[in-house]
Computed example of a mutant assay.
Amino acid sequence: MKLLEKTPLGKLELKNKIAMAPMTRSRASNDGLVGDTAVVYYKQRSTAGLIISEGINISQQAKGSPFTPGLFTQEQIKAWKKVTDAVHEQGSVIYAQLWHTGRVGHSVVRNGELPVAPSAIAIEGQQHFTQEGLKDYEVPRALTTEEVKQTIQDYKQAAVNAIEAGFDGVELHAAFGYLPNEFLAESANKRTDEYGGSIENRNRYVLEVMQELVAAVGSDKVGIKLSPTIPYNSIIHNDPKTQFTELIKALDTMPLAYIQLMNSLFPLDQLPHYPQDVLETFGKLTKHTIIANGGYTGETGEQELEKGIAKIISYGALYIANPDLPKRFELGAELNVPDRDTMFGGGDNGYIDYPFLDQN
């Protein structure tokens, strides 16, 4: 079974080709600290060759959702060190997903401060989870050019902090409508400075962040997550094929560990100019390791690896409910079903109490 084979990632070797995808679980403290239950949660799922952490706020400004962790204070770094030590004890590798939520937030979560974004354009047709319940999205405050450059430095410092916290590398969350994704998309970016307008300018932010991350932590320790065809959070690209082709070719000049590509998780009937097969369209463009993400089962993950484009398959919800997912794939065992009601926020229930096979 290819999923269970060892595979290289940068200068490291993974014990299998299964990754735990980054997933928000909203169980940190108000100060952005992960607690002892997070140590248990990640240790349980260290059956994965690679763990990519939940999104970690790179700064106070980056926070958009309640109860999400940070990596910009010494206390936060120390808290994550307990997690990375536990994962390494189990022979797994763990990357920190670096997160700036951009306009995907609310002032209720941000001590009254409006979310920031490339341009003052609100997300439409959705609501945001806050500690006071669902709220309509607000019009964000557009970042100045100086502030844009400061966020790039915030990413760099967060990467330094991640290595101090024991992470093996970092992943830039440039997908699903968060700040880097907002710079990429015409629907969210109407800037007239060097970060807006042409494809080259709209790609500039992501590329400058990635350059700083590599400079901060070294070669083969930086990954990126992209979602070229996901319209969630009001992200629409006029020409995703051309734009992401140019972006990926530029990323190929950097010494990266991987590119994680998200499949099209939403219907694209209203977007006929979008490529239907993300892996086929974009995965073949790069020399970097491709991690395929989005909707895979054990069987379809195996099939994806057989095609030869992706080298690793990342699993989200299945890993929430099945901490021993590789063993279940190996045995063809029945899978626990994720409890959607406990995915975001709460206590140990739906977090660290999913049974292993030998507990059933």
Results as ranks from 00 to 15, higher is better:
residue 263 N to A: 13
residue 267 P to W: 03
residue 209 V to E: 02
residue 256 L to T: 04
residue 263 N to C: 06
residue 215 A to H: 14
residue 248 I to D: 03
residue 215 A to S: 15
residue 203 N to V: 02
residue 260 Q to P: 05
residue 260 Q to T: 03
residue 238 N to K: 14
residue 229 T to C: 14
residue 219 S to K: 15
residue 203 N to D: 03
residue 196 G to T: 01
residue 216 A to Q: 09
residue 269 D to V: 04
residue 197 G to Q: 08
residue 253 T to A: 14
residue 211 Q to F: 00
residue 216 A to F: 07
residue 246 E to I: 00
residue 269 D to H: 13
residue 253 T to V: 05
residue 242 T to N: 13
residue 250 A to D: 07
residue 206 V to S: 14
residue 229 T to P: 06
residue 263 N to I: 02
residue 242 T to A: 13
residue 206 V to D: 01
residue 218 G to T: 01
residue 257 A to H: 08
residue 236 I to A: 09
residue 196 G to W: 05
residue 262 M to D: 04
residue 201 N to F: 00
residue 231 P to G: 06
residue 215 A to V: 02
residue 256 L to I: 05
residue 212 E to S: 14
residue 262 M to K: 10
residue 232 Y to C: 08
residue 206 V to M: 05
residue 213 L to K: 10
residue 255 P to K: 12
residue 263 N to Y: 00
residue 242 T to R: 14
residue 239 D to F: 09
residue 205 Y to F: 15
residue 249 K to F: 01
residue 256 L to E: 03
residue 197 G to N: 06
residue 203 N to L: 09
residue 196 G to P: 10
residue 204 R to G: 00
residue 210 M to V: 14
residue 240 P to G: 09
residue 207 L to A: 06
residue 225 K to V: 03
residue 244 F to V: 09
residue 232 Y to W: 12
residue 255 P to L: 06
residue 264 S to G: 15
residue 265 L to C: 02
residue 266 F to T: 11
residue 198 S to I: 01
residue 216 A to V: 02
residue 216 A to C: 04
residue 212 E to Y: 13
residue 235 I to F: 00
residue 209 V to T: 08
residue 267 P to H: 07
residue 220 D to N: 15
residue 228 P to Q: 09
residue 245 T to S: 12
residue 242 T to D: 10
residue 265 L to Q: 11
residue 258 Y to M: 05
residue 223 G to C: 07
residue 202 R to E: 13
residue 201 N to I: 01
residue 252 D to R: 02
residue 225 K to W: 02
residue 210 M to F: 01
residue 217 V to N: 03
residue 262 M to E: 02
residue 246 E to Q: 15
residue 259 I to T: 06
residue 252 D to W: 06
residue 207 L to P: 13
residue 248 I to Q: 10
residue 226 L to G: 11
residue 231 P to C: 08
residue 233 N to S: 14
residue 211 Q to C: 03
residue 198 S to C: 05
residue 238 N to S: 13
residue 230 I to P: 00
residue 239 D to A: 11
residue 251 L to K: 09
residue 237 H to P: 04
residue 238 N to I: 05
residue 202 R to P: 03
residue 200 E to M: 03
residue 249 K to L: 13
residue 227 S to W: 07
residue 262 M to V: 12
residue 213 L to R: 10
residue 240 P to I: 00
residue 201 N to H: 09
residue 220 D to G: 08
residue 202 R to S: 10
residue 264 S to L: 03
residue 199 I to F: 11
residue 250 A to N: 13
residue 198 S to F: 02
